[in-house]
Design a binder for these strands. Structure first.
Lengths: 208, 208
DNA sequence: TCGCAGTTGTAACAAAAGGTACAGGTTAAT
DNA sequence: ATTAACCTGTACCTTTTGTTACAACTGCGA
């Protein structure tokens, strides 16, 4: 089970006891792209850890969406983590964007572990802290920056993330990340192209 | 020390050992209104627990502000909580709005405790979860609702909070809660008055 | 009681964002 | 090769939000 060893290493899990427990209750799952992992208003029963692939987590409201974050290897979604502490319904949506490998752990175990094993405790606490700070940044960004600035931030983050200046996303996908509409993105991108910051082509934006 | 007993009861702290530790390292402090508890870019050294009074926590950006949350008895500010897990600078501001009583705990203890004492663990975890969910709601609200809706939500929350339909805040204070400017709040309130939802007077808004 | 700092109202304008409508491009599947 | 589904560009218009500027009001303290 390479995936489990990979998990142990990535999360700095050192206790043999904990490893044994994870091996016995954890379920390895291959999820194809575009599958829902969590859905708004539905109960979360598993703590999902992303071993490979990518999960997009967002909120929606009628016809609009806004990106919250991506869960990448090796991480967990805070929302499913908070479900481990009190049975709860999801207030977000999560969907794989690529074929994804998960290790799923029934929520009830995670609570015990955080008290029993230092490394698990550290992992969960860190997850909370980082997620909170990320969300705080996102909130500030939304509160104080206009669409064009938010878009540029997003594009630059993508560039660093994927290590390429070519962002392969359609305008409507971008709109759903930024929290606006397709037309606004199209117009904003055109402006950015005129000012020589980007170069546009079909389903692709090049950062200059 | 009534304050400490009050704290133990409110946080469901049952372990005698933990009580002893809190009593020995905790510092009781009376803070007058309008004092900074945490400041952006400054290090957080204490975990502050609000026993009585109220602390306003917000973010700012040049000339704009936006409210994050209030810390009320008996709670702690998540940001100072996350500082207990890794020495960090604050990304928010916190200021007392009333004369406030705090119990301050040096950050290094809080980490140990969360592993050593179940009730402390529970308290910190719950604090994280609730704060995260609150922020998520705020984010969604900001992303999808216009100023008038956000304002009404805020006013209604205040009404419930203080159990009175009279909200005693100036327009510029409201602007800083909502994340907009004074003029916009004035105009929006006038509209709301015309539609018979509120009644305006000096430094007071009555919800009808 | 006077003056001052903070508050409120509002007109006029500017900028940002959203919505409608439609033309035309690209791709993938049949 | 044709079609259907999706993508892009843009003109035009509306709504929302922000800015500037100024007049008038309120309440407190000297």
């Amino acid at each position: 089970m390479t995936e489990f060893n990979h998990l142990f290493k990535a999360l700095n899990i050192v206790e043999d006891e904990l490893k044994k427990e994870i091996l016995s209750v954890g379920v390895l799952e291959q999820v194809p792209k575009h599958s829902f992992i969590v859905e708004q208003h539905k109960y979360i029963k598993w703590l999902a850890l992303v071993i490979s692939g990518k999960v997009r987590v967002w909120q929606e409201n009628e016809d609009r969406e806004i990106l919250l974050y991506y869960v990448r290897p090796v991480q967990t979604c805070v929302m499913s983590l908070s479900a481990t502490f009190r049975d709860c319904k999801s207030v977000v949506n999560g969907k794989t964007e690529e074929d994804t490998t998960l290790i799923k752990i029934p929520v009830r175990f995670a609570t015990e572990w955080s008290f029993k094993y230092k490394s698990w405790n550290k992992f969960t606490t860190n997850a909370f802290i980082h997620s909170y700070e990320d969300l705080l940044l996102a909130y500030k960004n939304l509160a104080f920056n206009k669409v064009d600035q938010r878009l540029m931030k997003y594009l630059n983050a993508m560039r660093i993330q994927n290590n390429t200046p070519f962002i392969k996303r359609s305008h409507s996908q971008l709109a759903k990340e930024i929290g606006t509409t397709r037309e606004v993105i199209s117009k904003t991108l055109k402006q950015l192209e005129h000012s020589g910051v980007v170069k546009l082509s079909f389903k692709q934006i090049e950062l200059l």
